[in-house]
Write a protein that binds this DNA or RNA. Structure first.
Lengths: 241, 241
DNA sequence: ACCTGAACACCGTTCAAGT
DNA sequence: ACCTGAACACCGTTCAAGT
């Protein structure tokens, strides 16, 4: 029909608004797909289908699937950086701890919206621009509180993946199976073989029977406990070294 | 030739010592293969080939590949338990820390011989018999030092994967690429964008120019620093709570 | 420049069949 | 009881070809 309209800088909406593929659209679609249907549903074919395109078209914008994973991490860490940037800088040298705490807990909040992210992050080399930017600003917070570089370095390692807001939960469910009741029942059945763990879980579930929400552990509480343990330890070392 | 020898309990070695497949042999072969050629080489077909058998034969001893992974973890944690069992129990209530430390560092030594293990461990539910046994004995060490169950519980979570001897190294290489020199060069090139990290690495590599062995971080040192930070924090809380 | 069809080499797994 | 051949439904990826 309209062949002669293909001239130059035409900006009206085409009859079928076929948005052209870009690297950014591919990566964002990958993140959305993983958010919605899990990492195992993220195949090149599914991803292409999501974009209304054939699988092979993706390879024009992305070298291979590894590069898709790299890009997805950048998207997520980019979101973290955006949130973290809006946090007020520490008021004084002694105020480093609450600010570092809020930074890391903000990162965690973002990650909680992308449950697949930790698994992917763990397989990356973590030297992308957004990741370096995050660690650089975290490093800056410590510097502002007069930490020695040596202590900052050790502290970053001590934090590990916790710095980005996640930790491998020791007794995580594989995907959605493993209900906590079954685990508790199994433990009870093994009371003689694992006396310490059995007694511990028994006493802990008894202690807070008013606030038991999901299983025996509140992940957020445990995360903050570990985080504070490390931050308090660093604070103690700051003057001593 | 010898058809009539198929009688009953015949124990002489057969002419071709075709060892029959067992679940244990399959799992041990899987561990060996992953040790030798990496996790990505561990396919059902490769594993079968290693055992001189067709791929489909494996399914008689193992339900699927997930069960192979589960079994491999049990083999490795079994090795850890064997080493840990030989550690002397703490002499007194105050001696808990060196014993816990040695336990965890022993676990780490075993894991260092199975580089694929962390990645697989992170995707398991960690409720197998050997894993529970390990955590139960760790829990017992804390109990022996009069820790409250609540503090033990929080402490286990704070340790996280460190309890089993590993942590996701933040800037780990993917498999074998990423040489540290290239990373340093890249950082130098980005000195303006990441001033804190740049200055930190510059100073740290300058500090210990006598003992720089591999890149800027000694993983063992960092692991022990983080471990001690947490153990010291727990010690401080033990009396206070 | 951007997208596609057909094809390749590989997966894990099923199932009926062999001994 | 233990192992296998053939086949299925899926991968990621290449490559020559289309517009």
């Amino acid at each position: 029909v309209a062949v002669e309209v293909q001239m130059s800088t035409q900006t009206e909406a085409p009859p079928e608004p076929r948005i052209p593929l870009t690297r950014e659209r591919v990566l964002q679609a990958a993140v959305d797909l993983a958010d919605r249907r899990g990492l195992k549903s993220l195949t090149m074919r599914n991803l292409a289908h999501e974009l209304g395109v054939e699988a092979m078209s993706l390879y024009y914008h992305v070298a291979n699937k590894e590069e898709v994973f790299d890009g997805m991490v950048d998207v997520v860490v980019g979101e973290i950086n955006e949130v973290v940037t809006r946090i007020d800088p520490p008021a004084g040298e002694a105020d480093w701890k609450p600010v570092v705490r809020r930074t890391i807990l903000s990162a965690r909040e973002v990650l909680l919206m992308h449950p697949w992210a930790p698994e992917v992050l763990e397989t990356r080399s973590n030297l992308s621009e957004p990741t370096l930017r995050y660690f650089d600003s975290l490093c800056g917070l410590f510097r502002g509180a007069d930490f020695s570089f040596d202590l900052i370095h050790h502290g970053m390692h001590a934090l590990g993946s916790r710095a980005l807001g996640f930790t491998q939960e020791m007794f995580d469910e594989g995907d959605d199976d493993v209900d906590p009741d079954a685990a508790a029942a199994m433990l009870e059945q093994m009371a003689d073989r694992f006396p310490n763990i059995t007694e511990m879980t028994a006493q802990i579930t008894h202690d807070d029977d008013d606030s038991v929400t999901l299983g025996w552990c509140d992940d957020q509480t445990e995360f903050e406990f570990g985080l504070d343990l490390i931050l308090d330890g660093l604070e103690r070392l700051r003057g001593a070294v």
